[in-house]
Amino acid sequence: MSHHLFLLSPTDTPIYSLAHQSTKSTAPSSGSTLSSNLPSWSTAPFSGTLTALSGAQSVGTASTQNGAPKIGAGQDRHVIQMIANASLDVIEEMMVSNSAMYLKSIDKFNEWTVSAFVTPGNMKFVLLHEAKNDEGIRSFFMEVWELYVKTAMNPFHRSDRTIRSTVFDARVRASAKKWL
């Protein structure tokens, strides 16, 4: 079970990202992927990306070793980033009318579910996850929010700059380990 967290500034600049490999074993959400409806694109130069986008699981190194992060279909870094970015539209649409900060399961893409958290200062936390874990994700977001507020209180922090603090990173990782 892997999780991907992105912190996006009000101008949609990514200021922090984290890939977390969960040790908790939860049944993966099964759903039909887009690939079943698409022809195979084996010869195109973009085949890796295209098969990844279509959700095909049979390509290259897609097999899941125990504990090791999956590489390949749907797990490529740029695909993950694209899914996170694409969900921004949904988030921005929802946050106009929905007053909750925690927007759970707002978007689905192949095996990924996207949950988001919008702070009052218009920071967006986007989390890609595979299994349903509403309560854990809520607790995780709340801890990340607290850490973010503490970062923002630092007069040297600017809201459009990446967070490079190692302590912040360690705290978020610890929190991810605890809740995800």
Binding site: M95, V96, S99, A100, Y102, T119, P120, E146
Partner: peptide, 12 residues
């Protein structure tokens, strides 16, 4: 104000 709330809210 909202940090301890179960479902934190923003004003819309």
């Amino acid at each position: 104000t909202e940090g301890t709330s179960k479902a934190p809210k923003r004003e819309t």
